[in-house]
Amino acid sequence: MKIDWAALGSVFGVSLVATVALVGLFTLGIVGLSKQEQAAAQGGSATLARTGAYACFALCAAAVAYGIYLIVA
């Protein structure tokens, strides 16, 4: 019996890193947006927070696109 530990290990590693990275990015994006809203409510603006948030969301969207590519390919 040959168990492909290497494949299992890489599935484990890749899943762990990718999930934590994606969820982290997305959370940062949400936090950024929320900061920007708070700032807007007080009459100011938080360009950095907003730009950062959009960058995070763009990366997440790229990850989703890659996911679709993996499914189709």
Partner: peptide, 24 residues
């Protein structure tokens, strides 16, 4: 993977506004 990312997301969004984050 889900446990670690759940922990992290709760830590990161502690100060954020709940309504915005839920929508996100």
């Amino acid at each position: 993977a889900a446990m670690l990312s759940t922990r992290m997301t709760y830590r990161l969004d502690k100060k954020a506004d709940k309504k915005t984050t839920d929508k996100g």
